[in-house]
Simulated scan of single mutants.
Amino acid sequence: MPLLFNRPILEKDSYNPSFAGISTFAHLPYLQCWAEDANEDYDIAVMGAPYDIGVTFRTGARFGPSAIREGSKRIKGYNNELHINPFKSWAKAVDCGDIPFEPFDSGHAMSQIESHAKYLLTRPARPTHSQLNGGIPRLITLGGDHTILLPVLRAMREAHGRPIAVVHFDSHLDTWAPEIYNVKARGSKYNHGNPLYHASVEGLTTNGTSMHVGIRSSLYDKDDILRDEQLGFKMIKANDIFTLGVEGISERIREYLGSPEEVLVYLSIDIDVIDPSMAPATGTPETGGFLTREMRYILRSLYGYNIVGTDIVEVAPAYDTQAQLTSFLAADLIYEIMSMMVKYGEEHK
């Protein structure tokens, strides 16, 4: 059958503008990671968890993953502070898209998030780097509200076979005890105020080397501090920046974590750890937080630790400015952490 027209040959150009293309995180290749016939390997997996059933104030974090991906469009290249280009290295990073889950039942949704995270973590990393963490890929999760931390930590604990040291950046403790709060509401057993309570009780977090950083919210009562300590968490308050300074806070975190050779680290970042003047798009804003440059410095100070996973949660883009300040910030924080993951792997081949 004869052709009805001749198609022109397009001129190829290696440069694509940052604002173009379908939104994956930082233009990473999209991989249908959960498809039954998917057999590609990877070293770093990005997944979205658009879950916000557990919020207690302003809803909207379900739109966080798409907003963060949109905010990451301009991220492509060399990290001049950490001296690495995470996109041109040994590490194969992919964006797996969002976890499909049922949005009306929190318990069922959390089991789906856990099973999908486990699936990503049990997929093999590339053979050339299989000796790193036993071949377990590194996981980056885009939230969603902070409830998602619990099912992700369950998956991390099973994959790595031991508790993980969690550095929890937040203005809130997130260790509400469900037997004390909301006793009658069975559906609120799991919410964004208590993922670390459950994680500690279930043995998912290390005792004494896990911590909260940036705490400044009010508490229900003074016993919240005692309960938190009994769960094994250290605390660094936002106001400690006045006495310790940025470098002092960084040193305190490293002191709590201990030797980099002996600990697996998970970074969980609630975007409300940043002052709402710089990150307004969140469900439970608290004044008096870190500045963006302080947060990026503190994160980079953790270079040298084996960061096996991270999340950015509580980005609710409906409350952002037209300039997308919060979405850009969330994407930049992930970029810093991904850079550290890649550089660590480069130095521990």
Score class of each variant (00 low, 15 high):
residue 145 D to Q: 07
residue 113 I to V: 11
residue 85 N to F: 06
residue 111 S to A: 13
residue 148 I to K: 08
residue 76 K to H: 14
residue 162 R to I: 00
residue 56 T to L: 14
residue 161 G to S: 03
residue 134 G to W: 04
residue 168 H to G: 03
residue 133 N to H: 05
residue 106 S to D: 13
residue 162 R to N: 00
residue 106 S to Q: 08
residue 157 R to D: 01
residue 78 Y to N: 05
residue 94 V to T: 13
residue 150 L to M: 07
residue 143 G to T: 01
residue 112 Q to C: 06
residue 89 S to G: 14
residue 142 L to P: 01
residue 62 R to I: 04
residue 59 T to W: 03
residue 149 L to T: 15
residue 101 F to M: 12
residue 102 E to M: 08
residue 51 Y to A: 07
residue 80 N to R: 14
residue 128 T to Y: 10
residue 85 N to I: 06
residue 140 I to D: 01
residue 123 R to E: 00
residue 156 M to T: 01
residue 65 P to N: 11
residue 146 H to C: 13
residue 109 A to D: 00
residue 95 D to K: 07
residue 81 E to K: 15
residue 90 W to K: 15
residue 109 A to L: 04
residue 90 W to E: 15
residue 61 A to G: 10
residue 81 E to P: 02
residue 109 A to C: 03
residue 161 G to I: 00
residue 66 S to Q: 12
residue 68 I to M: 13
residue 119 Y to N: 06
residue 110 M to D: 04
residue 170 D to K: 13
residue 54 G to K: 13
residue 117 A to T: 06
residue 133 N to L: 04
residue 153 L to T: 00
residue 161 G to Q: 00
residue 66 S to D: 14
residue 151 P to R: 04
residue 167 V to M: 00
residue 65 P to Q: 09
residue 102 E to G: 05
residue 145 D to F: 09
residue 144 G to T: 05
residue 122 T to S: 14
residue 76 K to W: 12
residue 89 S to E: 15
residue 96 C to M: 06
residue 95 D to L: 09
residue 131 Q to M: 04
residue 91 A to H: 11
residue 154 R to L: 04
residue 54 G to F: 07
residue 116 H to R: 13
residue 129 H to T: 10
residue 90 W to C: 13
residue 88 K to V: 13
residue 106 S to G: 11
residue 91 A to P: 09
residue 144 G to C: 03
residue 163 P to T: 02
residue 86 P to H: 06
residue 168 H to I: 05
residue 130 S to D: 12
residue 79 N to F: 09
residue 70 E to T: 12
residue 172 H to R: 12
residue 159 A to N: 02
residue 52 D to W: 12
residue 67 A to F: 11
residue 103 P to G: 08
residue 98 D to W: 05
residue 88 K to N: 15
residue 74 R to M: 12
